[in-house]
Design a protein around this nucleic acid. Structure first.
Lengths: 190, 190, 190, 190
DNA sequence: CATGAATGAGTTTTCATTCAT
DNA sequence: AATGAATGAAAACTCATTCAT
């Protein structure tokens, strides 16, 4: 991993923000973690807040990118929804710390910066809404409020960051499958 | 509102923690909000953290109390689950600010105090798990992992605090009904 | 002991000043100790500092009074010095807490008030100096600097408040006798 | 005095603690004295209390070090005792402010830290006790309780910090000699 | 006599950020 | 690139004292 220094710093920040929260993590903590002096960090970052913004941005962009790929590749709405759920789980669990920072800490950005994340979150939500809407249009799915349906599924799948532990009985894939079943039963027309 | 001073302070804290987050809210902010000097607050509270703990405790206890009542009164598992969802929505939306403090800010308590909230959250989750388990036992519900089912539904219903706006097209009751339908379809045996 | 309230308060203050020091003892601590509210204390005292001043004054006055009595009653300088030492021990050990407040805490009075105590201390010292001087004049004692002699003996006897423990092997009287011997050998002409 | 910054801070603290006492000296006072901002002090110290601990530790260690050297070099108990008294005076008067901090302010350390100083003080006392004991064993000294003898002499010599003024008629050496005479007469066998 | 709410100045400490070296 | 000294504003909390009831 020939990571560069900035990535090292970002990773340290993710770990620490995840463990203690953004506010409780000092710039000194991050510096200690990467073995630099506090002042030296500022060669790589402009501010602690920008670091948080960049982490959150990278995280939400990852979610969007995956889902856009899914939408392009899958054919039916059902297939899209299934793969959307699987990919969401992949990221949440595969990048649990970063996802936690996105979902728990981005709120503490200043209004302007928080707006950027909120907008990106909305774009991501809209991708889900479009999938549901498409399913309703093709009569694959029931329901008449695709946004509410999307919020229900997405909330359920996001909440995972709050309870998932790697040492559980079920593998991430099994959990994803279980959730996928539940949600599809909720939306599929029969 | 001739409430007593402590309640006024707690309400101010809820409003501010909700608006800016626990860390970004200073004791001075709370004092300003209730029209006291900073030092005078300490006649009513022992510390800012204890104030947060008390708010979170009151909130989670409210959830538990309601659900226990539901479990005693309703007969079938389906009825319990439906009413659990409705009551959960009632509280989340009826006390949106306090719920937000519980779900977003309790994490920032120190370990000992956070533990108290986590334990109460687990008790609440277990009530849901028991309902699902009971439904599986009576063959009302499908599924073989009641905890995962509960986490899916609860996550979906908790997430509401992050997107609900009072000015939406649907009333809280309609949203609750919509979610209830989705989740029941996901779990009901047919 | 039909002590009045003020004496109760003074005694509580002595105990607490002795245990934690004047600065580390809050008015609240004293109020708690006597079972009053903080505000109620101020019916009996004018300020925390005045309370300290009164304790210290009472203490040093006690030392002076005893020594003046000794000087009037005893005949020879040797007898006076012996009884001065015994009486000093009587007070230091009999009122260990109050003496500790005098010797350790009076310094923390404001300049004006501290001056009052310093002056009283000087008067007490002068009584010792007079005894030594008298002994030198009558050739009972050796030495040519009665003030230094007095300071040596008094320092030795004052220091007792810092190490005396009631559970020691020797009784207060035995300690006094031991010290008396040492100091008399130091000053007596042979 | 191109001393380093920490020493400057410690010296400022010694001066201020000496003048006003530990509690009455604020971190701001110390910062003002060395021409730094309050916050900048914390590059050099961890806390005000640790600063006091370090001053007191350095002080008592100085006393111990000197006395250990004396014990190694001097031959007879009498010689040791004489030199112990001279060295004690050297330090008390040569470092009057630091000694004052040790003897008057160390009490205000928290229990754990105060214990460290008390233990060091006990070690110092024990060196005196050993000297006296040795003199008793060799029949140089009279007395049967070397600890009491040591406490008497040490108390007398410590008390000096409370009355010594540089503008007195006698030089420090003359005072030391005077005290030495007094105490030796008290303990020497004849 | 007693209360307890309220004050307001004070305390120690933290911390993101800057900058000369 | 890296340091580490310095800043200055802000934080939570304490406390002696006052006073209306």
């Amino acid at each position: 991993m020939a990571t560069n220094k900035y990535d090292e710093i970002a990773q340290a920040a993710i770990t620490l923000f995840n463990r203690k929260g953004y506010h409780a993590t000092s710039v000194q903590d991050i510096a200690d973690e990467v073995g630099l002096q506090k002042g030296s960090l500022y060669h790589y970052i402009n501010s602690k807040e920008e670091l948080l913004l960049e982490i959150a941005t990278k995280s939400i962009n990852g979610f969007c990118r995956e889902l856009e790929a899914v939408c392009e590749q899958a054919s039916t709405a059902q297939e899209k929804l299934e793969r959307a759920i699987y990919h969401h789980f992949d990221i949440v669990i595969g990048h649990l710390e970063m996802t936690t920072v996105l979902l728990r800490e981005a709120f503490f950005l200043s209004d302007d910066q928080h707006k950027l994340i909120k907008d990106a979150n909305d774009r991501y939500l809209n991708l889900w809404v479009q999938i549901i809407q498409e399913g309703i249009d093709t009569h694959e799915f029931r329901g008449e409020d695709p946004r509410l349906t999307a919020l229900s599924i997405l909330g359920s799948c996001n909440w995972v960051y709050r309870w998932y532990k790697a040492d559980g009985k079920k593998s991430p894939q099994e959990i994803a499958r279980y959730f996928c079943d539940l949600h599809l039963l909720g939306v599929l027309n029969r």
